[in-house]
Amino acid sequence: MEPFLQSLQDSGLATAIREGESLFPWIECAHVLALSLVLGSIAIVDLRLLGLASRDRTVAQTMAAVLPVTWTAFVFVVLTGGLMFTSNATVYAHNFYFQIKMALIALAGMNMTLFHLFLSRGVDGWQTPALTPPRARLVGALSLCLWIAIAAFGRWIGFTLNAPT
């Protein structure tokens, strides 16, 4: 693992990001922008599952309007996050907050996969919050908590790396 991380970090791209004056902050800007859209758009779906917002829309309508935004933004989050990671791969990989953040993202992904594969059966009938089953509310609540924690751990990474915060 270590040689791989080191070679990643020694690549021309990683060096340019690490040593450049403004490359890293600009990538960080794109990361914050994209993650804001990921967090916000997922929260829109979660709050509808919980019956707290978009109550006049069905779950299916809410997801159809929002999820293309989520996935487009998620691609940018991964790209920009990956670029920042390579610039200091050996350090990030051993950072506690980074490790927990990745684990939480994996959990959020599993929660979403379970929902789409099994738990969203009958989603077309979830016209109103009252018709939305408890299992969907549970998925929404779990997703919301996980993404808030992901945001927090992400912010904490910056405070444990001697970088401008």
């Binding site: 859209l37 916000g40 929260a43 935004v69 904490w156 915060t165």
Partner: peptide
């Protein structure tokens, strides 16, 4: 960092809603 986290969550709500 805790206040910055809450700040970012607020930014997420505002920017996603505006979008």
């Amino acid at each position: 960092p805790a206040v910055q986290t809450i700040h970012i969550l607020g930014v997420a709500a505002v920017v996603s809603s505006a979008l």
